Amino acid sequence: MSLDQLYQQIILDHSKARHGSGLAAIDAPAGAATGQSHQLNPVCGDEVTLRLAVQDGTVVQVAWDGAGCSISMASASVLSELADGMTVAELHQVIESFREVLRSRGKVQADPELLGDAAAFEGVARYAARVKCAMISWVAAEDALNQAA
Rank of each mutant, 00 (worst) to 15 (best):
S2A: 12
L3C: 05
L3K: 10
L3P: 07
D4K: 14
L6T: 05
L6Q: 02
Y7I: 12
Q8G: 09
Q9R: 06
I11S: 01
D13E: 05
D13G: 08
D13Q: 10
H14K: 08
S15W: 01
R18F: 01
G20L: 05
S21Q: 14
S21G: 05
L23E: 05
A25S: 03
D27Q: 02
D27N: 01
A28P: 13
P29A: 10
A30W: 12
A30C: 09
A30M: 08
G31Y: 11
A32K: 01
A33W: 04
A33T: 04
T34D: 07
T34C: 03
G35A: 04
Q36L: 03
Q36D: 05
S37E: 09
S37L: 12
Q39F: 02
N41F: 05
N41S: 06
V43T: 02
C44H: 10
C44P: 05
L50V: 13
L52M: 09
Q55G: 03
D56V: 14
G57F: 15
Q61L: 10
Q61R: 13
V62T: 15
W64Y: 08
G66L: 12
A67Q: 08
G68E: 14
S70W: 08
I71M: 03
S72L: 11
A74L: 13
A74T: 11
S75P: 03
S75M: 06
A76Q: 12
A76F: 10
S77E: 10
L79I: 05
S80C: 14
L82C: 05
D84C: 15
T87Q: 15
V88Q: 04
V88G: 03
V88I: 00
A89T: 02
E90G: 07
E90V: 13
H92R: 10
H92N: 05
Q93C: 11
I95C: 01
I95W: 07
E96Y: 11
E96H: 11
S97T: 07
F98D: 07
V101A: 03
L102G: 06
R105N: 04
R105I: 05
G106S: 06
K107M: 15
V108N: 00
V108L: 01
Q109K: 03
P112Q: 14
E113N: 04
L114A: 07
L114R: 13
L115E: 08
L115A: 02
G116W: 08
D117V: 04
A119R: 06
A120L: 06
F121A: 02
R126T: 01
R126L: 03
Y127G: 13
A129G: 09
R130A: 00
V131T: 05
K132E: 08
K132N: 12
C133M: 06
C133L: 08
A134F: 13
M135I: 14
I136Y: 00
I136A: 00
I136D: 01
I136F: 02
S137L: 09
W138V: 01
V139S: 15
V139P: 15
A140H: 15
A140T: 14
A141F: 14
A141R: 12
E142P: 02
N146G: 13
Q147A: 02
Q147V: 01
A148L: 08
A148G: 02
A149L: 11
A149E: 10
